[in-house]
Simulated assay, not measured.
Amino acid sequence: MKYPVTPDGRYFVVKGKLWRATNPNLSEAERNTYVKNLMDARRAVKQAKADDDEALLKAAREQVNKAKIALGERGPVWWSDNQKDFNRYLAKNTPYKKWYNSLNDNLC
Rank of each mutant, 00 (worst) to 15 (best):
M1P: 08
P4R: 08
T6V: 00
T6S: 01
P7F: 13
P7I: 09
G9P: 14
G9I: 00
G9E: 11
F12D: 05
V13A: 08
V14L: 09
V14D: 07
K15Y: 00
G16N: 14
G16V: 03
G16W: 10
K17N: 05
L18Y: 10
L18T: 01
L18N: 09
W19N: 07
R20S: 12
A21K: 07
T22I: 13
N23Y: 03
N23S: 05
N23C: 06
N25K: 11
E28A: 12
E28V: 10
R31Y: 06
R31S: 10
R31E: 14
R31V: 02
R31P: 10
N32V: 00
T33V: 04
V35Q: 13
K36L: 10
L38R: 15
M39Q: 14
M39S: 12
D40N: 14
R42E: 11
K46D: 15
K46E: 15
K46F: 07
Q47T: 05
Q47E: 12
Q47R: 10
Q47H: 02
A48R: 00
K49R: 15
K49T: 03
A50V: 07
D52T: 04
D52M: 01
D52F: 02
E54Y: 02
A55Q: 12
L56W: 05
L57T: 04
A59K: 13
A60Q: 12
A60D: 11
R61V: 06
R61P: 01
E62A: 14
N65E: 15
N65R: 13
N65H: 11
K66D: 13
A67Y: 00
A67Q: 02
K68E: 15
K68F: 12
A70C: 07
L71C: 09
G72V: 00
E73Y: 07
R74N: 13
P76C: 02
V77P: 06
W79I: 00
D81M: 08
N82E: 09
N82H: 06
Q83P: 00
Q83C: 04
K84R: 08
F86V: 00
F86E: 02
Y89M: 06
A91T: 05
K92D: 11
K92S: 12
N93M: 10
K98G: 03
Y100T: 03
Y100I: 03
N101Y: 11
L103E: 11
N104T: 05
N104A: 10
L107A: 13
L107Y: 08
C108K: 06
